[in-house]
Nucleic acid binder design. Structure first.
Lengths: 227, 227
DNA sequence: CTTGACACCGCACAAATGTTCGTGTATGAT
DNA sequence: ATCATACACGAACATTTGTGCGGTGTCAAG
């Protein structure tokens, strides 16, 4: 069984159930599915739902209104859920770790390996109150970010944006240095001051047009393994 | 508004919606609620649901079968969800933030306010592969841990234990200094070396019997608010 | 005592919703 | 050509399910 075995309609149905459930916190009816997937007949929706149930992708409770749910475990196992939307599952969501951030390296925009098993970090909605669809993560390599109190191996969660307010921590590409770094942003006139989190280090001051913001740092996560 | 304002029935209804939804992946009907909470009349269930909606504890979609959902954010905020089910919800668990860690302060063992609205952090099982029952969290106050690359406001997740291996980061009480600190542990003979994460700072060296380990640091989490 | 708010009960009704059946259209195998 | 199978359509049907209304009992305020 593979997703390619599913008809286009069945994929759309899965997609819709997922989105609807996330929005309403209860599953859709057969008619709601039909209306949104473009199926006029309830029996056709029913037919396709039965197929999906046969493939064990959804669970149905008979004679119960809205009595269906996605089989999240199965879907995840088949690597499909991430395609759906922001990678959200029941109060959790997964953020792709797009690459590494290290001295002298730009941030890659496109993930080289979109479904790298190690390429995700899963957070709860409550931790960051932000929509997941513009979040991405980077793994810090080396100790070049230690002035931002970010260590080798840390994971930095960023919100993709190309501007930021004073006082926010950003990932910025510094043209002259050919370097991406994490710093607090401060604009003064036409200059940009990039301030380290740790006051024992020196700020970087550059003309605004020599600094490109990649995203705002919304979280730093360090997981320590037992020795 | 407080939970004590709710009637016993309303509390049971909340509880039932929660359990039912977790089990079935869709919300219960008015009649299912009535049957399980011991209310014979659908209108009485409806009446109480409206009350709960007024208190903003649930959301209802009118004329929609099973059109209700718990307002998890609100419930969490009021500290109620933990009572429901051992702090564990569908791959997530909550860790109590027992107190603050700052220069000169010991770590409090017992939370003063068990359901402090700000007193929890919710993680996913995947993030730390550890049982939740011996984990606790501390909020860092001040910049006294900056040598461990831990900043003011960071949350430190600890595994409660009174010994640790070389190379592990621990929270330790240093008797002479009357201070709790975060450092990497290294034993050499009868001496304990507490090494900062940032090599620009100095290690602390003490006799082993003057250092008490509170727990092993398993994670550091920093959440940055937009400016 | 009366009144009104509150919580509750049953029941009937209408709307929402799943199920079933008859039918049609391709496509591929026999 | 014939048959089987997968997929689709629409309409009628039966259940599920939310809503509304009349009514009951309690209790405190007027």
């Amino acid at each position: 069984m593979n997703f390619s075995d599913l008809s286009d309609r069945q994929r759309r149905i899965l997609q819709f159930i997922y989105e609807f459930t996330n929005t309403h916190h209860y599953p859709p009816t057969i008619r709601e599915i039909g209306d949104n997937v473009g199926i006029s007949s309830t029996s056709v929706v029913n037919y396709n739902l039965s197929k999906l149930e046969d493939s064990d992708l959804i669970t149905r409770d008979r004679e119960v209104s809205r009595g269906l749910s996605l089989n999240v475990a199965r879907l995840t196992e088949l690597g499909w859920l991430p395609e759906l939307n922001g990678n959200r599952v029941e109060g959790r969501f997964r953020i792709p770790i797009l690459g590494k951030i290290a001295a002298g390296q730009p941030i890659p925009v496109i993930p080289s390996e979109p479904y790298d098993p190690e390429g995700w970090i899963e957070l709860t909605e409550g931790m960051l109150n932000l929509p997941a669809d513009r979040l991405f993560a980077l793994r810090v390599q080396g100790n070049s970010m230690i002035d931002a109190s970010v260590l080798d191996g840390d994971i930095v969660i960023l919100h993709a944006q190309d501007t930021a307010n004073n006082g926010e921590m950003v990932a910025a590409w510094i043209e002259d240095d050919e370097d991406t770094t994490l710093k607090y942003l401060r604009r003064e006139g036409n200059m940009v001051h990039l301030m380290p989190a740790n006051p024992n280090y020196q700020p970087i001051v550059r003309p605004a047009d020599k600094v490109r913001i990649n995203g705002r740092v919304v979280s730093v996560i360090r997981v320590l393994k037992p020795a």
